[in-house]
Design a protein around this nucleic acid. Structure first.
Length: 288
DNA sequence: AAGAGGCCCTGATAGC
DNA sequence: TGCTATCAGGGCCTCT
């Protein structure tokens, strides 16, 4: 579930709390994530100073002063919690649907002691992973195989239109294809196509240049809005115990099967269909 | 090369 | 109450 906006929120929160701090200790309780956490991870990052924290697509990147990098992918159920010595169970992040007001008891696989915080990586499904890169070149070579980020200037109507030429696959599958564009997952893909008024099964070679313009525009709009809402939900979360994330309140189509279309004056109904075994939501009337 | 589908995993939920 | 089945989804992998 963590898509680009959720990871961005995690990044922003971590940046505020642990930039410039040193990883004093690291405890790996369970190496068996999507990929095994390398045995020498502890040796590689212990005592290093966090210069800054970046994000590319759904990847969180801790950049150290010696130019090495720790990349964390949250998979589908990964969350990062910062427990402070001052306030107990002070959680800085969660990813919309797996919201928990207290620190989870199970599946805390990695713990790091950083300044006055204990950073905890929790991941019930273990689809997330950690990778270490000795230098920026190695990191870049890993990242360059992915498509541009939605906020990158490269993700424009011409790029999209050219990419789609002669392609037979449907638009929904391309939006979640990280080689085409990085950071969109199953939820936002449906939301983006709703705003574009394009049906998810539409073959991309049939899309016009103006459709491609819409895809570029609404992709940015949806993600930007989600980042804003997520940010505010995080703020609420610090104070209100058990508060819900606020993303889902803004969904137009996702998980709204059989409900009325929210577009002004549209009499349509939201349908759910599986495309390549992934749920896709759309209005049966205003999306063409 | 492009596209389809399998698989990894746990927890929530539904149905009997 | 307890069992089994189904679904949720990111991304790497294999097969055609």
């Amino acid at each position: 579930m963590p898509e680009l906006p959720e990871v961005e929120i995690v990044k922003q929160s971590l940046k505020k709390s642990i930039t410039g701090k040193i990883i004093e200790d690291i405890l790996i309780k369970n190496r068996n994530l999507r990929f095994k956490i390398p045995k020498n991870l502890k040796k590689n990052i212990i005592k290093k100073k966090i210069k800054t924290i970046d994000r590319f697509s759904k990847y969180l990147i801790l950049k150290f002063e010696d130019k090495s990098n720790l990349m964390i992918h949250l998979g589908m159920s990964g969350t990062i919690h910062l427990v402070s010595k001052l306030k107990k169970n002070y959680s800085i992040t969660n990813t919309s649907f797996y919201h928990s007001p207290t620190l989870p008891k199970k599946h805390n696989h990695v713990e790091m002691k950083i300044d006055k915080f204990k950073l905890i990586y929790n991941d019930p499904r273990r689809f997330g992973y950690f990778s270490y890169f000795k230098n920026n070149q190695l990191l870049q070579s890993k990242l360059k195989k992915y498509g541009p980020e939605p906020f990158d200037r490269l993700f424009n109507k011409n790029y999209i239109f050219n990419y789609f030429k002669n392609k037979k696959k449907n638009i929904k599958n391309f939006l979640i294809d990280q080689n085409f564009v990085s950071g969109i997952g199953n939820i936002y893909a449906s939301e983006i196509l709703f705003l574009c008024k394009i049906l998810p099964f539409k073959q991309v070679k049939l899309l016009s240049l103006s459709d491609c313009q819409k895809i570029s525009y609404f992709t940015r709009l949806v993600l930007r809005k989600a980042i804003k809402k997520g940010g505010s939900s995080i703020r609420d979360f610090k104070n209100v115990s058990g508060a819900q994330g606020s993303f889902q309140k803004n969904f137009n189509v996702y998980q709204r099967e059989n409900k009325d279309c929210l577009k002004y004056r549209c009499k349509g109904r939201i349908s759910k269909k599986f495309i390549s075994k992934r749920s896709s939501f759309f209005c049966n009337l205003c999306q063409k």
